[in-house]
Amino acid sequence: MTAPLIAAEGLVKHFPVRQDVFGRVSAQVQAVAGVSLAIAPNEVLGLAGESGSGKSTIGRLLLRLLDPTDGRISFAGQDVTALHDRGLRPFRRQAQIVFQDPIGSLDPTMTIGAAIAEPLRLQGMANGPELRERVGALLQAVALPAGYYNRHPNELSGGQRQRVVIARALSVDPSFIVADEPVSALDVSIQAQIINLLEEMRTRRGLAMLLISHDIALMEHLCDRIAVLYLGRVMEIGPARDLVRAPRHPYTEALVSAVPEAARAGRRRIILRGDIPNPANPPAGCVFHTRCPYAQPDCSRIVPEMRPVASGHLKACLRDDVP
């Protein structure tokens, strides 16, 4: 693999869930528990997982919108973990975010033009007529009419708003984007427009992307590699098509088989028992063992290490023989 654009090592994030009367933390959720990832330039890495898997938290940690409890983040070879405020400015120009909710991610009091211009102004990259011109070009790039410049978000449909959000993220010409469920709030017939737009931007601008999603089919389509998360830990990571077609971790297998289309393709349906455990109190050993159809006595004692199963394909599972 080429030198990574962005890399995280041993990322840990705790959130306080309970505080006593004096504001002291008495319980914590381990949202992210030791995650290491690397994304190469122009690569799309997918983060798959269910609620409580910590996938959105990882996205925000990588962008330094949250401070990690432990671990290191480096961008283009430079350690950005310890940087703050002003020191982060150059990194902020390189790394942007697209959210799931196209309503909440635009300020209702700001015009579309002002929203797209905001990162450019913050980074001091353009002003005056040049700023207006660049915003116009961005509107065009995401296939929105130039007349939308002075409109407000409430005048736009969900798909159009998501285009604005993408234009805003692209305005500073970043090299890395975190897309957190970029299409799941959109109508099915609109999703494809946004998926294609993201793909086009990636090819045309050489973007690297972290795609956070629960949609396995979308990830297989859009990603080069996929990392599967469960309770803040990576269960399996590997080339997208290999991982989806031939999962090597029992959790990945169940996740893929839960996609309705998988059953029609002849996949055996695996119904997992029970619910996702409380991240404040994760099971001992392998965190998945409470729901794993292949669990053995060892699984509740030994924490499995990530180990390679094929070239560029790793899993954290004690068993070799399954699935």
Binding site: R60, L65, M110
Partner: peptide
């Protein structure tokens, strides 16, 4: 709000966010 987070991701600090986003929305 997500738009505030997006602004932070673009390098905004309190001096920017309060007058640009918070004040107009509480007006």
């Amino acid at each position: 709000a997500l738009f505030v987070e997006a602004a932070r991701a673009a390098g905004a600090d309190a001096v920017w966010i309060v007058p640009m986003h918070i004040l107009p929305n509480v007006a």
